[in-house]
């Protein structure tokens, strides 16, 4: 694949290896994600997908066991020896596979990140909160209970709350880890529509268990298996029989494990 040299990739990963203690979760992965692209990662459990996402915004610092080798560039900047992790994290929105409604009101959950950026004007916050909840397809359900605790919403609602919270960061890179795991199919489709629109504004990395979701949304797709990146390419090409590796074909066609 030829990358145009003028555009700096949003994300550049070179020879990334991730270890937990002596256990290797991911080895030798290199890839690039271009601005305003939806890049999806598919693969079965234990593939190392979540581990991969964790190092992108340096969440590896939470876990003293977790170490990585290789280089990661965000906007061309090496993220290993950052002076300020917090600034990097503010620019990357992350949606975890298990929803975490923070123990504050629905409103505050979404207003937290803007507040951290220094936005304290109520009217301004109101606008951001409503827009983000709209986009996460949650507004209609919670607009009358913005003052109730976020951690008391249903699982699927909390999942969309975390999406709204990630959007409230106005991130350059949005990272979603199996977001549809706790969300019903209809809502999933609504969020997928929103992701297609968001692509105009940001870059999206989508880890998904639903192979068809990758096909519907992603420009390019990578297939991870047991800590390796087996294959990577234009999504449509991979799905229309141009995949080179037999394991990719098997996985895409659902003939796996």
């Amino acid at each position: 694949m030829v990358t145009t040299t003028e555009i700096t990739p949003k994300l550049q990963v070179k020879d990334l290896t991730i270890r937990y203690g002596s256990h290797t979760a991911l080895s030798g992965v290199s890839l690039e994600v271009m601005p305003n692209e939806i890049f999806s990662i598919i693969g079965p459990a234990n593939a190392g997908k979540t581990s991969f996402l964790k190092v992108l915004n340096r969440m590896d610092t939470f876990n003293s066991e977790m170490k990585y080798d290789g280089k990661i560039f965000f906007n061309g900047l090496d993220t290993r020896h950052l002076r300020n992790h917090y600034a990097l994290r503010r620019r990357i929105g992350v949606v975890f596979p298990l929803p975490v409604g923070l123990p504050m009101t629905v409103y505050e959950n979404v207003a937290l990140s803007p507040r951290l950026r220094g936005i304290n004007n109520k009217a301004e916050l109101d606008v951001i909160v409503e827009r983000c909840l709209q986009r996460a397809a949650l507004w209609d359900e919670v607009k009358d209970r913005l003052d109730s605790l976020g951690s008391l919403l249903s699982g699927g609602q909390q999942q969309r709350l975390t999406i709204a919270r990630a959007l409230s960061q106005e991130p350059e890179l949005l990272v979603l880890d199996e977001f549809s795991i706790a969300v019903d199919p209809v809502t999933t489709m609504r969020i997928e529509e929103v992701l297609k629109e968001l692509k105009e504004e940001m870059t999206i990395i989508l880890v998904t268990n639903l192979v068809q979701q990758a096909r519907r949304l992603a420009d390019r797709t990578a297939f991870f298996l047991n800590g390796e990146c087996v294959e990577m390419g234009i999504t449509e090409a991979l799905f229309s029989g141009e995949a080179k590796d037999q394991r990719t074909i098997d996985y895409i066609e659902g003939r796996f494990g």
Binding site: N57, R89, R91, V94, V100, T162, R165
Partner: peptide, 9 residues
């Protein structure tokens, strides 16, 4: 909770 908040920056 801590991780979610830290991930927000």
């Amino acid at each position: 909770y801590r991780e979610a908040a830290e991930a927000l920056g």
